[in-house]
């Protein structure tokens, strides 16, 4: 990825746009939205505080076009491409999803592939810089100081290590949007600065980030501006500091 020119934040290209989105996951523990508007531009960071009982998986899937909102429109753009998730242009949808890095809250692995195959799967499938995948994987492993368990199946790797490999998978596909569902769960707090540093670097290269959490400690001071912190109350996004949500 290349570093973005210094445009004012409000003039940077839009990455994710929610317009009057109403979404109910159908479960009490899911995240519900009521006519939510939100815009994330290149380099933006948004953190949404959820209740501990709420699971953000369905919400993240909706942002990726895997679930349909009851009302409203979700759009995702990258490199002057993308658009909404409607219609049956599935090839375009898959291409759009290939530019979204996601850390799942749970059930994040293909169990019959080893960890290395899992982590590199999307990049090998979409043939993004195929030649340098191994070097990049080694670089991220070193950066997050995680042991090499690439040949192990996910079922045999401890959750804290697997979680860091989820981070690596999300960054490895050179994403334009990062969807992080409680990325710090199972992981030591001492690793938060490393994650935040990697996020800031991705943002400086044009990625937008949406961090879903229920831990106020995740609101790290290291997260650079522009950053928007929201809490979700009765389906509405309420800005905690500054933002553009309603």
């Amino acid at each position: 990825m290349t570093r973005q020119p210094d445009l004012p934040p409000s003039e940077k290209p839009i990455v994710l746009k929610l317009t009057n989105v109403t979404f109910g996951s159908g479960r009490e523990s899911g995240v519900n939205l009521q006519r939510v508007n939100m815009t994330l531009r290149e380099g933006d960071f948004a953190m949404i505080h959820l209740d501990r009982s709420q699971h953000p998986r369905q919400l993240a899937s909706m942002l990726q076009g895997l679930k349909q909102p009851a009302e409203g429109d979700v759009q995702f753009f990258f490199d002057s491409q993308g658009g909404d998730w409607g219609g049956d242009d599935f090839d375009r949808h898959f291409k759009m999803r290939s530019r979204i890095g996601r850390v799942f809250e749970s059930d994040a692995w293909i169990q019959n592939l080893n960890v290395a195959e899992n982590v590199t799967l999307a990049r090998r499938h979409h043939q993004i810089d195929s030649a340098s995948i191994e070097q990049d994987l080694a670089k991220w492993r070193k950066r997050f100081d995680v042991k090499n368990v690439g040949r192990e199946r996910p079922a045999f790797v401890e959750p804290s290590v697997l979680q860091i490999y989820q981070w690596i998978r999300a960054f490895l596909s050179k994403p334009k949007l990062l969807l992080l569902e409680r990325p710090m769960q199972s992981v030591s707090n001492r690793l938060r600065p490393k994650l935040v540093e990697a996020i800031n670097e991705a943002r400086s290269e044009g990625a937008a980030v949406l961090w879903l959490t229920s831990n106020s400690a995740d609101e790290s001071e290291q997260i650079t501006a522009p950053r928007m912190i929201y809490s979700l109350q009765q389906g509405k996004l309420t800005p905690s500091t500054r933002g553009s949500a309603s």
Binding site: R57, Q64, L66, F94, R97, R102, F104, I110, A122, H125
Partner: peptide
């Protein structure tokens, strides 16, 4: 295998990475 993958959300994980489950 496919039923287990579906139940364990592995198909969704593939889909979320832009990999068509029909193709893969």
């Amino acid at each position: 295998e496919l039923a287990t993958m579906l139940v364990n959300h592995e198909v969704e994980v593939l889909d979320a990475q832009g990999i068509d489950p029909m193709t893969a």
